[in-house]
Computed example of a mutant assay.
Amino acid sequence: MIRVISLTDKGQALGKRLVAQLNDALLSHKPQPFSQQVQTYFTAGERLIFICATGIVMRSLAPVLADKYTDPAVLVLDENGRFVIPLLSGHEGGANDWALQVSKLINAEPVITTANAYLHPIYSVGMGCERNCPEAELEGLFMQSLQQQGLSIKQISCLSSIDIKADEQGLISLAAKLGIPFLTWNKQQLSTVEEQLSTRSTYVHSIVGVYGVAESAALYSALQCAAAYSKQTDITLETSLVEQAELVMNKQKTAKATCAIARAYAS
């Protein structure tokens, strides 16, 4: 869920404009008690858009900040709608990209100060599944994951998995339906991003030779797609390149499928 929080009448008017253009968004005007309410929204995992001063936001959220891997994205806008600032979780939480999206909605200027701000983000979705998993279950998990991260299908470079899933009809048909490539990689390739996995399953490793299919495929594909975008050739996974890939959504799962989203940056 997206929560737009305003403190002035002018900010409320801007908030109403935003809510009308965003999916699954609510406007909270002058919530009271302010700090307690916004902390509740934040700890519940809501993505927050504040229309007020950055100092108020930081003082209010400081007691509940955890880390950049788990905190939800937070944006701050001025009440005139001139600037959009990704304040928290710029990379891992997707606030940088979200700021770009929001700025386009209201014709504002995104103010992005983190590293990689001037590079092009490449997103890849990795999926694993039981044999003959229904396409509907795969699609539901895929779309739910995109919505959770505030991404659109146009931002996804590919759907990917391990090579033993190269003939998995549900994945093949889903990629075709979405109009994106379906890429698969062998266990040697996927093992090169092993250190970046959020969790490791010894059971999965005993079956397919990697500790996690969805996260490994997402990370490795993001690297390869970023390299292709930059028109690089003879790619080797050197440390500098590996560090450009990051999980933006750790593995999510249903009864029969898993999904993860990764991002790399291309020049």
Rank of each mutant, 00 (worst) to 15 (best):
Y220K: 06
L159V: 12
L146G: 10
P121C: 06
L141D: 03
R17M: 15
T114A: 15
L178G: 03
W185I: 15
T258N: 01
I56W: 03
T114W: 07
M127F: 01
I164S: 11
Q252C: 06
K231I: 02
P181Q: 09
D97K: 08
I5G: 01
L151I: 14
L22N: 12
H29W: 08
V204R: 13
T199E: 07
A62V: 14
D97H: 12
I153C: 08
S191Q: 14
P181K: 04
G212N: 10
C129N: 07
T70D: 10
V64H: 00
M143W: 01
Q188F: 05
L77W: 01
D9W: 02
A266C: 04
V210I: 15
V84P: 00
T43N: 03
P134F: 07
E130I: 10
W98Q: 06
I122N: 01
P33Y: 11
A245D: 04
I49E: 08
F182A: 06
Q36W: 07
L14Y: 09
H91A: 12
P121A: 12
I51G: 01
L151H: 05
Q155N: 06
K104A: 13
L190N: 12
N80Q: 09
I5H: 01
E135D: 03
T236Q: 11
E139R: 09
S103C: 10
V64Q: 02
L237T: 09
K253D: 02
E109Y: 08
L237Y: 02
Y211V: 12
A95H: 04
Y69D: 12
V74Q: 01
L174F: 05
Y203V: 15
E238K: 02
V210K: 03
T236F: 06
C158Y: 00
T239N: 05
K177D: 15
V204G: 08
I207E: 13
P63Y: 08
G90W: 00
C225N: 05
A262G: 05
L88C: 09
D234E: 03
S152N: 12
V76A: 07
E137H: 10
P121F: 02
E92F: 06
W98G: 02
T70W: 03
P31A: 09
A264S: 15
P134K: 11
F34Y: 14
S267F: 02
L171H: 08
G81T: 08
E194S: 15
T113I: 10
Q196E: 14
D167W: 02
A73C: 02
I235S: 00
E79Y: 00
P134W: 04
D9V: 10
F182C: 04
